[in-house]
């Protein structure tokens, strides 16, 4: 039986998502102490990932909007992927806020 490549990627994504949800549940049950953050270092990977996603989203929107602003015909195909990745990153950034808060 031939397995499509896209379904393999989808399965990998689902597995990662499941791991994330399970570990998030573990953190909700035990508190932010499981992240090993302490009072002197109160912000960690969560908030830096948030900043990363915000940056990607802003970059994608700048690319797509400047293509339309300067009306560059041969770059028009890139606007779709740029806008789409910006939208996905916005969702990712929003999701990163939830585990970072102590009391969501």
């Amino acid at each position: 039986m031939r397995v499509k490549k896209s379904s393999f990627v989808l399965g990998l994504g689902l597995a990662l998502m499941l791991t994330g949800l399970v570990t998030w549940g573990y953190q909700i049950a035990r508190g932010l102490i499981v992240t090993d953050l302490r009072n002197p270092f109160s912000w960690g990977l969560y908030i830096s990932t948030f900043a990363f996603f915000v940056g990607i989203a802003a970059g994608g929107l700048i690319v797509s909007s400047s293509v339309y602003l300067f009306n560059i015909e041969q770059l028009k195909p890139f606007t779709r992927i740029a806008s789409l990745s910006a939208f996905a990153s916005t969702l990712g950034a929003t999701a990163m806020i939830l585990p970072d808060m102590g009391l969501p």
Binding site: R30, G31, L32, I33, L37, N39, G102
Partner: peptide
């Protein structure tokens, strides 16, 4: 640096 957080 006087604020403290309830990590658990």
């Amino acid at each position: 640096g006087v604020r403290q957080f309830n990590w658990e």
